[in-house]
Each structure stands twice: as structure tokens, then as C-alpha cells.
Design a protein around this nucleic acid. Sequence first.
DNA 1: TCCCGTAGTTCTATTTTGTAGAACATTTCC
DNA 2: GGAAATGTTCTACAAAATAGAACTACGGGA
Lengths: 114, 114
Amino acid sequence: MTKRKFLGEFEQVVLLAVVRMAGKGYGLAIRREIEENTGRGVSIGAIYATLERLEGKGFVVSRAGKATAQRGGRARRHFSISPDGRNALVRSRDMLDSMWDGIDLESDAEAEVA
Amino acid sequence: MTKRKFLGEFEQVVLLAVVRMAGKGYGLAIRREIEENTGRGVSIGAIYATLERLEGKGFVVSRAGKATAQRGGRARRHFSISPDGRNALVRSRDMLDSMWDGIDLESDAEAEVA
DNA sequence: TCCCGTAGTTCTATTTTGTAGAACATTTCC
DNA sequence: GGAAATGTTCTACAAAATAGAACTACGGGA
């Protein structure tokens, strides 16, 4: 029961997609958002599993959309980020930033050690 | 055997620490580097497991340090990043950056949806 | 010499995350 | 009523994260 202190790699991505969709995000749309923004292909199962976990941790909240919208198909489940989710995102970003700080990978200045 | 396209969250951190240590990094020192930079406490087992995995993927290389150094204790195992590791780091960073692009979590401008 | 302390790495175990895709649900339109 | 469209849930499993005990190896003193 080791409580994690930082978001997983994919959790960050999904949570950011939720933020981007500004409350209008739902499974398929979130997947699209990620694919369009990053070119990264993801399965729908991966999206929901992650969303589910994020909800369990209180980082997102979901609510059922109106069933009868002007289209065919099942009702959407909309997701939005919570204050805790926002904090988690910032914490993860800051942590990574502090590790990146001062690093310049392009300049070939890697020290060699005998 | 689903080949992952991006580094895991902790893999990124460890790999960055390896870069920071500029070839002089080894297990305990890498742990210290992470803890000092981020305040994040990590077990030594976590460090080695990740380093091992990274090496298996060809993202770091390790070489045994001189056994008889001017100190007690076992010989160190030094790690340095590989060109592939550098690419992986950049890819992961860019992917996250593209998701963060345009987002401002501080400004309370989250849309509410009815 | 042998024990102790120090410095490091390995090993063992387990939980959490990440991943895919089939199955299932719900609504519209012919 | 059945097909097509749109979504979500379920099932399974691989990979990553995590902890800490065990083990290894050297130096220094009694």
C-alpha cells in the first residue's frame, strides 16, 4: 500500500488531456486529444483504466453526460480535474523540471570517465 | 512484449540523475542526487532496479569502478547515458511539453460544464 | 588475524501502472 | 427490427515502481 508521491508517466499525459478539454473531455475525445497532440497511439482501454485510477485517487471527477444528445450512441462520461489533481500535476512537473535544470543534452558536453 | 515508446516516470528521473553526475554516478550517489534535487526519498532497491532496466534497454551503460579506491567498501559501478538514452529523454520531454503547451494551471480559468 | 564499520550492490517480493482489445450498452436511422 | 455509430466496461497480462533485507568487499584497529 505504498502511497505514491508522483503521477505515473501516462497518468500525467491523461490528466493533462483532461485539463486541455476543459471539462468537456470524455474517453474517446481524450484519446483523440492525446493522439493529435503527441502522435502517440493509445488504446481506449488504457485511457479508461488510467482515468479510473485517477478518479480513485481523487485527481479527476466524472459525471454522466446527457444520454440523449443530438447523435447516436451511448451517453458520455465527462471528466474534469480536481484541485488535488492540479497539485499533483504541478508537483510532478516541478520535480522533473528540477532534474532537468542545468542540463543541455544537445551540447555534446558529456564528461568521460576513465 | 509491448515495446514502450516513452520512459516511465521514475526512469526519467534516474536517467536525468545519471546525466547530472556526468559519468561519475553510481547507485548511492545517484540516489543522493535525486534526493537532494527533488526532496524525493527513494529506496536503493528502486534505483538499481531502474538502472538495470535502463541498461537492458540500452539507455545507460555501466562499468565497474576501480575496486581499491581510497576508501573502504565494495567497488562502485558507474553509469553513463547512451545516445539512445539521450534520445529517449528528449522524446519524453517533448511529448510532455506538447501536452503542457498552452496550459496555465495557476490562473483559475477552468471551464465548468453543466 | 579477525572483527567491525563503512560503502556498495544484489536479491526477493509485492503493489501500481501501462497496455490492448473484445465485449457490451445505447441511441439513431433506415 | 437491424445495422451503424458512439461510448464505456471488462478481462488479462506485461512492465515499472518500490522497499528493505541480504550479501559483498575493503580498510583499519585491537
